[in-house]
Nucleic acid binder design. Sequence first.
DNA 1: CAAAAGTAAGTAAACGTTTGTTTACTTATG
DNA 2: CATAAGTAAACAAACGTTTACTTACTTTTG
Lengths: 202, 202
Amino acid sequence: MRPKNTQKEQAIKDIALKIIAEEGLENLSMQKLAKEANISPRTIYLKYTDKDDLLIKLYIEEVIGAYEHAILHGFKEDLDFERGIQLIWTNAFAFFKERREAFALMQYGKSSPLLNKSYQEHQIEEGMFFKPIHNFLQFHIKAKRIKPFPIGVYRALLFAPLMDLVNEYFEYMDRPKQLITSKILKECCQAVAQGALLTTIK
Amino acid sequence: MRPKNTQKEQAIKDIALKIIAEEGLENLSMQKLAKEANISPRTIYLKYTDKDDLLIKLYIEEVIGAYEHAILHGFKEDLDFERGIQLIWTNAFAFFKERREAFALMQYGKSSPLLNKSYQEHQIEEGMFFKPIHNFLQFHIKAKRIKPFPIGVYRALLFAPLMDLVNEYFEYMDRPKQLITSKILKECCQAVAQGALLTTIK
DNA sequence: CAAAAGTAAGTAAACGTTTGTTTACTTATG
DNA sequence: CATAAGTAAACAAACGTTTACTTACTTTTG
């Protein structure tokens, strides 16, 4: 049996993400992908049943999965509130900084009905990957350190600004001066954490 | 001369937005749009030079323009900080609540390179529509009431969570209990404003 | 321990559809 | 009846996917 060429498997993923990031999801075609990866269209269909399958696997495995893994690096449920949020922000920013194409597809997850639907299904199947963060928030709510918002609401309050800042970071990459420095990022993280606190001391 | 049928002009916009919201930008085709609007494909080309032109005009005029207009309703630059942010949040939420399809295309603005590029150009041409908000923030920075972040950073801190909450509102619309109530929304707005304050009193 | 057999990996070229857009024509009103 | 609005039908090009075939490697066999 002829062994499979793993370089080609990787090339499919890499170039698909590259096309999505540079030209948009709506301009990714199987024939263009095959041509740019120097393979036959058929080869893609050896790994993926169809285009939707490719997109979903790219999104869930290469983007969401890798992101979920990256942001929890070094995270512990009993961390101090500000320190915990800071750690996740640092991890997430470092992850996207090195993987701009993953960030581009991540953004499509909020727009595309196909990706959005698969994300919901992924969350159900995987039984909430972010359980540690869930517990972490619940702990600080019970300790009356932060406001008693639902977890979904905290996702918006604590992490939506970060995604916007990553976006801004990439936009300022081509300009002479970067707006999103690590100093700004740290201060933003503190601001976001400050907003969550029940009582604040300054 | 035969007069133009404005109903058909409106139908093109409405149905295009509907298809994008329900099936995604990547599944909008000129022929599908024509068929669903009960017109000839040619009719679309009387108003728009090509597909990109249609998408850009939909996005900039129907979505961004309408949004910019809606959120500044009743806004004044010398408003109290918390009150100003609250007003914008209320206006934005009311706008999207009534125009779910506009929100869907708005989300694509962060993903699609075509829409993203036209947004940048729009900002340059229109010379910052959000000048009142700009001035409002600058005023409160000078008064040492809020942290001296750049405006782009404040956009992320103050309004990114709102967009996520609107998204969550729509997701919970089909479920028995709505998570995003106006009470929660108000408290989130206060949290976001609290995070921006230089000194906090509780 | 080479050569033949077996087999999945991979290809080139094509399949029928659908795409964005246009041509040639008809319709309705000032 | 002039003229722009609007249509039905078609265009080439590109689409997702498949067919028929070749390649390269493992395993079996003499």
